[in-house]
Structures are given as C-alpha cells and as structure tokens.
Computed example of a mutant assay.
Amino acid sequence: MTKLTLLLAVFALTISCGKSKKEEGEDFMPSSTTEQTTEQTTDASSYDPKRGEGKYENVDLGASLDKELAAAGENVAGVKCTSCHKMTDERLVGPGWKGVTERRTPEWILNFITNPDPMIDKDPELQAQLELCLVRMPNQSINDDEARQILEYMRKNDGVN
C-alpha cells in the first residue's frame, strides 16, 4: 500500500509541475504584455519585415565604426546578450550574431532589441527561428543608448572598421 501511495504522489507532482510548450513560452512575458501581443498579432499585415515593429524608422549609422559605442556595446552585450548568443554563426540558446548586420537593416535590429515580443509574434522568419531555438527571446528592457551600442558592437563583429 505504501508503494502505491508513493507512486501516486510522484505522479501527481509530475503532472502538476509539468508545463505545455505554450506555457513555457509565456514565462518570459508578463500577462499585460501577453494581452497586448495577442491584440497586435491580429494585425500582422501591417508588419514591415525590413524595419520590424517599433519606433526606429530611419537610422543613419555612418560609414565607419564608432569604436566608443562598440566598446560600450560589448559591455552591455556581455551582461545581457552573450549568455544566449555567440559572436560566431553558431547557435547557443539563440542564433549566433555573425553576419546579422549584413542580413538585417539597422532599423530592424534596433526594433528587435528594444521590442522583441510583437516582432516575434508577426515576423515569419523569427517564428521559424523560435521553432529551432525553442526559447523566446526575453525583453531585456534595453534602452535606446544600449541598443545603439549593441548594434555598433554587432557591426564591429561583422568587420566594419
């Protein structure tokens, strides 16, 4: 009888602690964001895959690298990004950063860094990436200055001088 009780207790704990894949993705989003994202998802037709979704529309980077911004971006990325992203094309938790500034516009990168939730919900390429990585990029509350610094660090990584 004791073995049966123990077995039932383990079974009950296993069921109560388990989460579906849908619930796991929601762990990174507060409930108010979930409601907002669901509302925004319905209007995916207005999504611009070149610019993304957010406040950045026309970003002028200049031809040469801003070394001070890149150094600051390396520090920010070291704290908020590199635990999931490698600087190579190799995937860690998220995709590697090599070549990202050649594949994506500065507007798209800045909008994604500062506003990932609506972009993940609307961008078919990001949704495909989510299928590979299985972890939704969390919103790191990166401010505008930090986002610009990270972008410059990405440019440095991609060989901009």
Rank of each mutant, 00 (worst) to 15 (best):
R148A: 10
T38H: 11
T14F: 12
T14R: 01
E152I: 00
H85T: 02
D60G: 02
Q129T: 13
M29V: 15
N58K: 14
C17E: 07
L134W: 03
E39Y: 12
T33S: 11
S45L: 02
V135G: 00
I120A: 05
K98S: 13
V59L: 02
T37G: 02
G73H: 07
G18Q: 12
G96R: 01
L13W: 03
W108V: 02
H85A: 04
V59P: 08
V100C: 06
Q40L: 15
H85Y: 07
D43I: 12
Y153E: 08
W108P: 04
N111M: 07
T5L: 15
P106D: 06
A44H: 09
S16G: 06
G73Q: 03
S45Q: 05
D27N: 12
D66R: 04
K50V: 04
L61A: 01
A128D: 13
N157C: 01
A77S: 14
A44K: 11
Q36C: 04
L130I: 03
S20E: 10
S20V: 06
K122I: 00
N143H: 05
P95I: 10
Y47M: 03
A72G: 08
L132G: 00
S20M: 06
T114Y: 01
E146G: 00
S141D: 13
V79A: 14
S20R: 06
A70W: 05
L69E: 06
R104W: 13
K21V: 11
Q140D: 01
V93T: 15
N157S: 06
P106R: 03
V100S: 14
T37S: 12
I15D: 09
I120E: 01
I142V: 15
R103N: 09
V160F: 10
E53G: 02
N75W: 04
D145P: 00
S45K: 09
D123G: 05
P106Y: 03
R91V: 09
C84D: 08
M1H: 11
I120T: 13
E57W: 02
D123W: 07
I120H: 03
V59A: 00
T14S: 14
C133S: 14
E74Y: 05
M119T: 15
K98Y: 07
Q129H: 06
L126W: 08
W97S: 11
S141F: 11
G52K: 04
T82N: 13
C84A: 10
K67V: 13
R148F: 08
A71N: 10
T34A: 14
K22I: 11
I142T: 14
E39D: 05
N111T: 07
H85M: 07
K98P: 00
N111I: 07
P95F: 05
P138V: 04
Q40K: 14
N75Q: 15
L151M: 13
C133H: 09
M119F: 01
G62N: 07
E24S: 04
N115K: 03
V10Y: 06
I150R: 00
N111E: 11
R91N: 08
R148M: 12
T38A: 14
E107Y: 08
L4D: 12
E146C: 07
M1I: 10
C17D: 04
L7E: 10
A12F: 10
S64C: 04
Q40H: 06
T82S: 01
T88K: 01
S83R: 07
E53Y: 13
G73S: 05
P118Q: 02
K98D: 07
T37I: 15
L110V: 04
Q140Y: 09
M87N: 08
S64N: 14
L6D: 06
M87P: 00
